[in-house]
Design a protein around this nucleic acid. Structure first.
Lengths: 185, 185
DNA sequence: ACCTGAACACCGTTCAAGT
DNA sequence: ACCTGAACACCGTTCAAGT
């Protein structure tokens, strides 16, 4: 609602991208918005509250932009997950924050999470209907694919995935592996 | 090597479990070891160094204790991943720290990661040899299973997994789902 | 309703010394 | 080799006050 509030969130998110969690101080955020160092307390109860607002906005906006428009059901599902991984790689600090201890709490964030999950489940159901992957509970299979993409992205960020030699696989490869396995024989 | 060094790491890990990352201050760690508030600097170059030491020790010790002794190859593989998830749930702060920005760096940590990965690949290869899961590259399939377990555990910690109704699945269920899919028909 | 300035307790880090 | 005590700049948070 408040203009300053939005600017504070944006400035904080930008500091997060630039210098990691340690760079996000209320003083630096305030300075970047040309307000006094404790003006943020008029918009957020605490620093944790500001971080939660970033996570909430991120979860609400990110999956929408990554939504593909064309292609068959399986292709759309695949692109949805590749978009998820691309987001994690492009904004690792926001990705970590979104699934950190701030994820509990506000209704705004819960609604965003529900909406994102719903889009995934619909993509899975469409792929099942088109008989491009084996029939089953779309919600359960959706969680399976999401958990894999999330884990692959998180491991990749820490450098725990890129092995040398024949086993070499990046996060996108692992998503494709799972989708290939889920295909009907 | 130094006795004080080990005690500092242990005290820091305990503070991490108790109050999260914010509770780990060098001053609190030092106090708990009955040394002055800057004695840690004689053993670690910085706070980040101390945190990296926790991550390293965690990665080296955890997977060993969770190694199962009995059962067929697929059962051992399953128990290995269930142990991974149990670890994440029991010590969420250590789990997050281990795969945080501290994971890069020391050789000690890289060796620990390599050893843990090797154990997983061997379990996968054994299950393939026993024809309990479809043949393939054990390293690649190992990463697939690890990424799923890791992602399921991380999402579960944030409360992003436990949905109501028919799609309900906890992290262990998702591991079992994947192993079931990987089975030969 | 929104903001400022001073102040408090705390933290990471450094430095000069001590044994 | 390992530790202490004082000091510095910085941070989250609070409070009284201003428009």
């Amino acid at each position: 609602v408040s203009d300053t509030r939005d600017r504070l969130i944006e400035a904080a998110a930008r500091l997060l991208d630039k210098g990691g969690p340690a760079a996000v101080t209320l003083r630096a955020v305030a300075e970047r918005c040309n307000v006094s160092h404790n003006a943020p307390y008029k918009h957020f109860a605490s620093k944790a509250d500001l971080l939660a607002a970033i996570a909430s906005r991120e979860l609400a906006s990110r999956p929408n932009t990554a939504e593909p428009r064309r292609g068959d059901a399986l292709t759309r599902l695949r692109q949805l997950m590749h978009g998820y991984i691309r987001w994690a790689r492009a904004r690792p600090a926001r990705f970590k924050l979104t699934f950190g201890p701030w994820s509990q709490g506000t209704d705004e964030l819960k609604d965003a999470a529900t909406a994102a999950r719903q889009r995934l489940v619909e993509a899975v159901a469409a792929a099942m209907k088109a008989k491009q992957i084996a029939a089953g509970d779309p919600e359960r299979v959706g969680y399976l694919i999401l958990a894999l993409a999330h884990g692959a992205a998180d491991l990749a960020l820490g450098g725990h995935l890129a092995a040398a030699g024949k086993g070499k696989a990046d996060a996108e490869d692992l998503v494709d592996d799972l989708l290939a396995i889920l295909r009907r024989p």
